[in-house]
Nucleic acid binder design. Structure first.
Lengths: 174, 174
DNA sequence: TGGGATAACATGGGAATTTATGGGAAACAA
DNA sequence: TTGTTTCCCATAAATTCCCATGTTATCCCA
């Protein structure tokens, strides 16, 4: 699980340290690497580990084989994603095209989003975070939106399928 | 698994370097080679390794023996595919007909699509990628299309409660 | 609860290796 | 021969590896 936001600097060789807590989350992956997609939805990179890439592969594989959307996705997603291997100190080297796509010069922000994380130009991200947070405050003031998030699913229901949560209930330290 | 797009040059002898990461993906194949099909769907070459050719063979073999589609596919697919062996530096020599079919003169682009990859004229591919990415951004802004891809299946949620799924993913070298 | 010791982390720079690509010689076919 | 194809070697650029260093966070003990 990728959580929290942190800033790092890309050096002259376009290397950036991936936050240690993110690397920890990737510890059991088959490759010591991250998969990175210059997202077509904006100037940022969408990244993650094995789970991230498999999710995309499966979503695409589940579409009919000669479907237009599928073909587009194969090219735009799989054709754009790259696997970036960690060096011995936990850095990855960002390809020039990725740097260009996300407007990264120097500082960049890592934003955790559970199963994936994003990399943004640091200033852009700061502004964006502000905007999102206030937009959200407004939205949740609307009862309909508030119900969409919260939606009746409570912890108890989740726990039925989660061993770790059940252990928590029983008082075990995790 | 073939991922990402990269450009290479075909030299005077029609040799092109296959991206190192693709060669890595083919490492366990019985031949040090790729299978290449001048695709009937456009000016590009569809390529892959053992998995790629076997998929086509099976699709065709599964059709009724005297089926017209089957006979057509046998000719158009199996009759057109060639196996191109790597030289000692990881290049293949493209036959003239393939060069002509895909309009390759000099630069060409390799586009990874998971189990196969495509080779395009570099400029054609650049334009095409642009078009696909913006088309996709628009399409996915439509909730109905977004749902087709993603469709409610959340691998991450599944995996948290399924040891067997996790084991499956970790054991699978892709 | 300080505050020093220790470990972990982020980052810089140079060396070594890999990759992409060009060109020539040897083998082969027409 | 003449034109192709295959193999081998050379080189430049890009990438990866390795070590060094300052900084931050964590631990431990008085």
């Amino acid at each position: 699980m990728f959580l929290s936001t942190s800033e790092h600097t890309a050096d002259a060789k376009n290397r950036v340290s991936v936050p240690a807590s993110y690397r920890e989350a990737l510890r059991d992956d088959p490759y010591d690497a991250i998969y990175v997609l210059p997202h077509f939805d904006g100037p940022f990179l969408e990244c993650g580990g094995e789970q991230f890439i498999q999710q995309y592969r499966m979503d695409i594989a589940n579409l009919p084989r000669y479907d237009r959307l599928r073909k587009d996705l194969e090219v735009a997603v799989l054709g754009s994603i790259r696997r970036l291997d960690f060096d011995s100190t936990g850095r990855v080297t960002l390809p020039k095209e990725f740097i260009a796509h996300a407007n990264i010069e120097g500082r960049c922000a890592f934003v955790g989003c559970d199963a994936h994380f994003q990399i943004w130009n640091a200033e852009t991200q700061t502004a964006r975070m502000q905007a999102i947070r206030s937009r959200l405050a407004e939205r949740l003031a609307d009862p309909a939106e508030a119900e969409r998030m919260g939606g009746g699913t409570d912890l108890g229901a989740l726990m039925q399928n989660s061993e770790s949560l059940q252990a928590l209930l029983k008082g075990e330290k995790l």
